[in-house]
């Protein structure tokens, strides 16, 4: 399952940061999640709540998710538009020569801990 794999990588990163900063108890983890990252937030939360119980550092930690909107740039006319609404065809000029500029991120933003 995709979300569980992602959760393991978040936990691994939090554990490394915890180590580097001598943290003993993490209470909140904030994630930036791209709109087209392919990760389903509700499933991510379910996997998170299950997986953190097996850790020492973040047993009770909450997962907060901030969404990064997906934006596509059109190479033909240089305009940027919302990917989810218009897909890969530029709504301004009809070109298919378009690239995603943001929206696939899965970033660990910050950790609240003591």
């Amino acid at each position: 399952m995709h979300e569980l794999g992602i959760v393991f990588h978040i936990i691994k990163t939090v554990e490394r940061v915890g180590d580097e900063n001598s943290l003993t108890n993490v209470s909140e983890v904030t994630l930036e999640l791209g709109e087209v990252s392919g990760v389903v937030p509700s499933e991510l939360n379910d996997c998170w709540n299950w997986a953190v119980k097996k850790t020492e550092l973040m047993k009770e930690a909450k997962l907060l998710i901030e969404t990064i909107p997906a934006l596509t740039l059109c190479e033909s006319c240089g305009k940027t538009y919302g990917t989810v609404e218009f897909g890969r065809v530029c709504p301004y000029c009809g070109s298919e020569n378009t690239y995603l500029v943001q929206g696939r991120e899965i970033n660990l933003k910050e950790i609240k801990a003591c």
């Binding site: 990588h9 940061v17 899965i106 970033n107 660990l108 933003k109 910050e110 950790i111 609240k112």
Partner: peptide, 8 residues
């Protein structure tokens, strides 16, 4: 609060 700002 520890700022991490990195891809997982």
């Amino acid at each position: 609060i520890i700022e991490v700002k990195e891809s997982i």
